[in-house]
Structures are given as structure tokens and as C-alpha cells.
Nucleic acid binder design. Structure first.
Lengths: 345, 345
DNA sequence: CTGAAAGCGCTTACAG
DNA sequence: CTGAAAGCGCTTACAG
């Protein structure tokens, strides 16, 4: 019994001596199909290695069972070095999708270019997950457009009031607070902060806010001169740290807004002959795999990527199901390693 | 002018005062449409933010413009630590897909479970890319089944004669040869090889073959006692190195079949108080980002992931277009770092 | 250059 | 419990 091309439900219907809709019902487990008939149909389907045509069923049902992940990456347009933090997010998002019986389309986007957010408009995906750093001010307008169009999407980022759409993020404020408190506990008093601290980078800004709050809680005053902008790349961290050193301001710790920035700072400090943690303690944020392997191993704030991926997918599915959905900030965890361990003064 | 739900080509046809097929033609840039008419249609489509329904067009055309990436991962079933090497592959595959106007479905699979290779059967994808290590003998049968079913697929791995399907891989033999020759140049004479060297792991086996060939080219004889099985994880490398040390065989270099194995070996050697590279030189294979950051930085063989991703996608598209397609082994590059640099004896 | 017609393979009311 | 009918939104011969 050979059939040219792939088998369709009609082929199965003929072979089973029933109508095509009955095949469809049996395959989707409808209760209103005779048990005998169902068994016969399933057996034939198995033999023919039949799979429901997703294009046809998606067209008919007007939903695809697919989510799209849009990965924004500006610093590294061409080569394949993505922020390692996002890799673990990707892993957990994929797994969460599988768990919920959805497929995942993955697409890398330049922040600058027009977003190919037409995955949903073209019915290729039921909703979109946005992932990636970049200047928030440059994307907020496009986010608002997505909301206007009624596109279903969630984004990874700081979940703050007044933002368009639903955001899932880490509790960046708490992370910034905890790691700064830790540095203070180690006896550090003049702590430099590497990373943007303004509304262009809300996640970093929250980390800075936590940082400043921890200082104030100990009666210290955050100094603008001890902060230097940086984005999440090793080079940016390297440059920022050098710039701060050249500024002549003394500091006994670097609180970096991300692990990559911290790793760049480690390199800068080494180049200038400063010992870590003895001369300058260093901390990061993210807990990428590298953090534990660099020397000295990096104290950092661990983001719960596993829960993050799960929540992103679940919130998005909620949105698609037209349930009320709120953003959320996920708790973080301080991970202390050598880069910040020193004798209390 | 509001339309309930999303606009369709019929809506546009009404508004433009033409028939629906004409809209379809104009949108796909068919030459047999009046320039004026086309302009009007495109303008309306833009205003309505119209996007062709992919389900409908895929159903009609019987192809989806989508490829599926199946990621196999046995060692790390649950947590999100994927072999970093595959991350860069993912990056380059995604980019290559975008370049060719295709979307990419990504799916993680347990090696043990039944493959969800039904992406193609369900017409969700036109073809499949298989990526991931594991026992070749356990997967070959399933690969043969894919070939039988006429599924379009390419896999990353050793491209050797007699294998089912089309493989794209690195020139593992040359890599194993080059890095061993380098160790010999550094004065090493008793080189341990960590990694499976049999047909269960064809890529490793090829690396070993190159390794052995380089020894013979210098008049040395490969010794079975200096080889120890290991899979691509740090733990496995760590254990294999300890086992070899416990075996009492002396060696002055470790030629690891992958960077992760080498990093595990570095840890084992450190634990036993052996200095790298002075007591034992160590080399890896892959050139994952970590390789340059561990201490001492790891000498390794760089695989060209960028070209790899491109070739995987292009070969797969060739297969889909029913062109004749051959497997290929991509040239590799030796990257020398501290872990193997020593005074010639 | 354009329209009327058919059909891709499903799912889901609607009858019975 | 089952079948006949309609329709999801496209694309592509087929006429004109």
C-alpha cells in the first residue's frame, strides 16, 4: 500500500473505511468516536507514519502552537559571541516551550534594524518573547507599537511601572543592594560602579539604585565620580575601568553591572598592577559560566534563568489565552567567590 | 477604515478594487501586474500592516520556509549547561538561516528519547539540522530511518564514507595531527590522549587517528595505555585524567579530544600538584570562549563554526531543492596558548 | 495585465 | 457516534 507523497487524513479515512472528519476526531482524541474505530485509525496512522499537517490545522484553527524568540544583539553584529547569559536563557526558554507543547522559532535581530516582529502578524507564531540588552529609549516606541497592534509579547528586562507590555526580570534592585552590602562587609568603603545608571538601561539603573541604597543604609553617600558608564561587553568594562583609574579617583572595589564588565575590569586592574581582591575587590552580575572560571573567580549575583525562561513562556501563554498577566521581578542570589574575599580591615 | 481581526488579501482586494489573486501577485512581486495597480496595493497593505498568512501560503505551496534545528544533549538533561561549542554553532546557523530567508525552529532533545523529527512530517519545517554529541552507534539506526523516509536532513559530525545522510564536520584528523605535532615540537614525548577513540564517537576517533599518525610520522608508537575514554564534559575529563595518573603511566602531555575534557584535566593535574605546562602540557579541541580564559590559557584546535553553520544551512537547502549534495570536512586552525608552551628540552 | 475557479489539508458546527 | 458541508487564506494554472 503505497501513497505518493505524504499520507493525509483522507488517505487514512479511505483505508479505515470512514469519513475524513472521523479520522480528524480520532486523532485529536475526541470522545465522540467509537473505541474500535479509533483504534483502527490510530493503527493505520502509525503504520503510515502520518503526522497532522500543521499548516492546515494552524490555518483552520488560527493558531500555530509556536512561540517566537527575538534575540537582540547590538554589540556583536556579526560574529557569534552572544552574551553568555542569554545562552542559558535560551536553554530554559526552549525547555519551557517543550514542556507546554509549543515549538520555538529563534531569530537574531539587530537592535537598529526594523524588527521582524511579523512572526505573529503572519500567524507563524502565536506570540513573541523579546530578549536582549540595548538602549531602552530606542526600543520603547516600538514596544508601544506592538501593544497598539495587539501583538502578544513578553520581554526580559526590568519590570517597572509604566512600561508598555509585560516584563519579566530579575530583582535587580535587591541584587545591587546585596552585593554592595557584601562589599561593605568586606571592609570596602570607596566602591566604583561600572555600568550605565540611567533610564536608558533600566536593569542597570535598578542595580545602581540598589547599590546606592546599600551605601546610604551604612551612612555613606554615592558619588557620581565613582560611577562610569559601560555596556555589557568585556571591552566596555575594560575601558570603563581604565577611564576611572585615569580619572585619579581612588577606589577599593569595583561593583560591575554585569559579569562581562567585571571580567573587563579584572583585565584592566591586572594591566595596572593592582591585585584583586587585595587592592581592589571586584564583583559582577549574572553568574555566567565564565564567572566561576576566571581568576580570581568572580563574586556575582546569580539570576535564576531557569525560572525566568519558565515565567516568560507561561506569561506569554497567559497573554495568548487572554488572561490578565502581570510583570514580575524574580529573586536573585548572591554568590561569593575569591574576587571579593578579603580580611576585614 | 477598520477591519475586525487581521487584514487578509481579500480585504486589500476590496479596498483596491481588484481581485484577490491580483493582490497576491502584486505582493509577491509578479511581473504581470500593472505598475500603478501594484503601487496602490502595496500602499494599502502597508497601511493595514498586512502580512501574508504563512500557514495559508505554506499549505498551498507545500513548503514552509522554515528549518528545524534538533539539539541533542545527553549529559545535561535538565539544567541549562549546554556544550558552549554548540552555542556558537547555534549563532551561526541562525544567521545563515536569516541570510537565506528562512526561519529556524529550535528544539532540544534527549538522545535517549524518540526524536521529534516530525517537524518535517508535519510540514512545519522543510528540513532538519541535527546537532549534538552522543554514541554514534545509538543514533545511526534512526539516521537510516530518516534517509528511508526521505526526510531532508544534515548533521554535524565526522563526514566519513558509508554514513547515512549528509554530514558537515571539521577536519578532525588534521586537527588531531596538527596539535600532536605541536606538542612534539614542544619536546613532549609521552602524550596521553583523553577521549573515546572508537567508532562510537567518530569525531573523537578521527582526532585520535590524526594524533596517532603524527606520532608515527616522528617514529613514535601510539600506546593504548596512554589513551583513556572520556566524553565532552569537564567531569569526564577530570575523571579520565585522574584515572590515567592512578594507572601509574607517566606522561608529559595531555592531548584532550575537547576543550571541556582539557579543562577537566587541568583541574585534575592541579589537584595532584602538577604544573601546566612545565610538568604536563595540555591541549584541547574546539576553542570555546572559556579556552582563552582558563589559567593557563588553553592551546586548542579552532573549529570554524561560522562556516560550519553556513554550510549546514546551504547543504540542507540544496537537499530540499533536490540538488546533489556531498558531506564535507572543514579545515581547522591550531591556536597556541600558554598551556602547551615550554622550553624545548 | 486581470479575474473566476480550484485546491492545499485540516477542523468544526450542523444534521442525523 | 458519524458524515456532508463549509471555510481558514493563500497561490497557481486557466481563460480572456
Amino acid at each position: 500500500m503505497t501513497i505518493k507523497g505524504k499520507a493525509t487524513s483522507l488517505d487514512i479515512a479511505h483505508m479505515a473505511g470512514v469519513s475524513q472528519p472521523t479520522v480528524s476526531r480520532a486523532l485529536r482524541g475526541s470522545p465522540m468516536v467509537n473505541a474500535e474505530t479509533r483504534k483502527r485509525i490510530l493503527e493505520i496512522a502509525r503504520q503510515l507514519n502520518y503526522k497532522v499537517d500543521k499548516n492546515a490545522s494552524s490555518l483552520r484553527c488560527q493558531q500555530s502552537g509556536t512561540l517566537a524568540l527575538l534575540f537582540f544583539e547590538d554589540p556583536t553584529p556579526d560574529d557569534s559571541l552572544i552574551n553568555p547569559f542569554f545562552h542559558s536563557m535560551l536553554g530554559s526558554i526552549t525547555r519551557a516551550c517543550a514542556l507546554h507543547g509549543h515549538d520555538l522559532l529563534v531569530s537574531f535581530q539587530q537592535l537598529s534594524s526594523d524588527w521582524h516582529a511579523d512572526f505573529e502578524d503572519s500567524n507563524k507564531a502565536d506570540g513573541i518573547i523579546l530578549l536582549g540588552y540595548g538602549d531602552y529609549h530606542e526600543s520603547v516606541e516600538r514596544l508601544e507599537r506592538l501593544v497598539e497592534q495587539g501583538t502578544h509579547f513578553v520581554r526580559w528586562g526590568a519590570a517597572l511601572p509604566g512600561q508598555p507590555g509585560v516584563s519579566v526580570g530579575s530583582d535587580n534592585f535587591q541584587g545591587g543592594f546585596d552585593i554592595t552590602a557584601h562589599l561593605l562587609d568586606q571592609g570596602c568603603r570607596r566602591i566604583a560602579f561600572l555600568g550605565h545608571a540611567d533610564s536608558h538601561y533600566p536593569e542597570f539603573a535598578e542595580r545602581y539604585r540598589g547599590h546606592a541604597e546599600a551605601l546610604r543604609a551604612r551612612g555613606l553617600t554615592p558619588e557620581a565620580a565613582l560611577q562610569h558608564d559601560a555596556i555589557t561587553t568585556e571591552d566596555s568594562g575594560h575601558n570603563a575601568c581604565l577611564a576611572l583609574l585615569d580619572r585619579g579617583k581612588r577606589f577599593d572595589a569595583v561593583c560591575a553591572a554585569s559579569d562581562l564588565i567585571a571580567i573587563g575590569a579584572l583585565r584592566a586592574l591586572r594591566e595596572r598592577g593592582l591585585r584583586v581582591p587585595d587592592d581592589v575587590a571586584v564583583t559582577g552580575f549574572d553568574d555566567i559560566p565564565l564567572a566561576g572560571s576566571v581568576s580570581p573567580a568572580l563574586t556575582t549575583v546569580q539570576q535564576d534563568t531557569k525560572q525566568a525562561g519558565q515565567l516568560l513562556v507561561e506569561k506569554l501563554l497567559g497573554l495568548i489565552a487572554r488572561e490578565p498577566v502581570e510583570g514580575i521581578n524574580i529573586p536573585v542570589k548572591l554568590v561569593v567567590r575569591e574576587s571579593s574575599r578579603r580580611q576585614a580591615l
